[in-house]
Amino acid sequence: MSTLAPLDPLTALAGGLLIGLSAAVLLLFSGRIAGISGMVARAVGIADSGTPRLQALAFVVGLPIGAWLLSASLRQPEVIVTSSIPILVTAGVLVGFGTRMGNGCTSGHGVCGVSRLSPRSLAATATFMFAGFAIVALARFMVGG
């Protein structure tokens, strides 16, 4: 198993700035919040309201294009996924269900909502962060890692 190489904090910050710039441009040009779970639900027809469907689809399709362009030009990522199929399926269902129930994920609440100090987004972000920390800690002590 390969181990995770440390990432230069400036690179992480630069990536974050790109993400924030994306959300900023979307807000100032189209008036929309860059919430990815909402856009995905809208793009596939699970949500009936929100960003117009074609725009949501264009945004969602842009994600892998951008990731591919960056890694082809700047830095090929060394992606490490250790999760088994049952874990991936469980995690996926929880993420899909939870983001719809809580109206957002790391982008809509974590980036956009926190940026405007929305009480709902601050509460949601604190909650999913805490749940994430708790699950990883639980996994660590159960597996004995």
């Binding site: 630069a14 929309r32 945004f59 842009g62 700047l74 490490i80 996924v81």
Partner: peptide, 24 residues
């Protein structure tokens, strides 16, 4: 729609640059 595609692409590039596409 073009803005959506451009911002989606920018967002994806940011996720790749910051290695957030890497679950580890």
């Amino acid at each position: 729609t073009i803005i959506a595609l451009v911002t989606g692409t920018l967002f994806g590039a940011g996720l790749a640059l910051s290695d957030m596409i890497n679950p580890a």
